[in-house]
């Protein structure tokens, strides 16, 4: 499944990963390799297991069979391996999940100070530089509740970047946003893509996929059905499932 001409050492390897919720088989033999600096967009109908897969990569969900290797470390029950991986993998959620009782700046400095053991002043300078990059430095002293959804999601991106991760995971980052705010978040992500970050992004934003993805992966019913370069995949879907999905997406937009 190595994608569309992108070569490099692997950053994430999923090898025959299986997962069940009780009797429900939510991931079926998922095998996927993401190379360093590669940008992969995962799409698929709801319930296809795409969020579950991305959440397995930093072990917010545990898989039951198969191997997941992130940045050379295999995900096991070993808590130290998990700590290493979570330090190197940033995640952005659909519902932002900012900490409402902390200011924007505190949201961004908490993990660098306590996990990276960075001095407070340094962490704040770093946070401000990332807040500037997502274009909201003036909100640093406010609380998340005072910001719009788009601004909150940009803070969430800045918060993840403050840990200087090697890999960024995005779990439907624009699905909870009002239409007029989607662009500001996508622009931020495009800006991030330009820096050469390894990215895995679950999204239905096909324009975004075309513009930044090296490879698009289509999932349905817990398995990877097709994958390939965005242009090729969208123009020439080989399976009926992808055709159906694309027609539904296009009708929806």
């Amino acid at each position: 499944m190595q994608g569309a001409g992108f070569q490099g050492p692997p950053a994430i390897v999923l090898d025959k990963v299986n997962k069940w919720y009780g009797a429900m088989h939510v991931l079926r033999d998922v095998t996927l390799t993401v190379a360093e600096k590669e940008r992969v967009v995962v799409c698929g109908p709801s319930g296809s297991g795409k969020s579950t897969m991305i959440r397995c990569i930093n072990r917010l969900e545990t898989h039951q069979e198969g191997r997941i290797v992130v940045d050379g470390t295999e995900l096991t029950d070993d808590i130290r391996a998990l700590d290493t991986i979570r330090r190197e993998v940033g995640m952005v959620f659909q519902s932002f999940n900012l900490f409402p009782h902390l200011t924007i700046l505190e949201n961004c400095t908490l993990a660098p100070i306590w996990v990276r053991k960075m001095p407070k002043a340094e962490a704040e300078a770093l946070a401000m530089s990332y807040l500037e990059r997502v274009k909201i430095p003036e909100q640093a002293r406010k609380y998340p509740g005072q910001l719009s959804g788009g601004q909150q999601q940009r803070v969430a991106i800045a918060r993840a970047l403050c840990m200087k991760p090697k890999i960024m995971l995005f779990d439907e980052p624009t699905s909870a946003l009002d239409p007029e705010m989607i662009k500001e978040v996508l622009d931020t992500m495009i800006g991030l893509a330009d820096t050469g970050m390894t990215m895995v992004c679950v999204t239905h934003e096909m324009g975004f996929a075309r513009q930044v993805a090296h490879r698009v992966v289509f999932m349905d019913r817990g398995e990877i059905v097709e994958s390939g370069a965005p242009g090729e995949l969208f123009e020439n879907p080989r399976t009926d499932r992808l055709k159906l999905f694309l027609s539904q997406i296009l009708r929806g937009h």
């Binding site: 979570r86 959620f93 993840a160």
Partner: peptide, 14 residues
Amino acid sequence: PKGQGEAADALGLN
């Protein structure tokens, strides 16, 4: 909300 704990986990907080 469950997301609060998940966000903290994802940031690497113990």
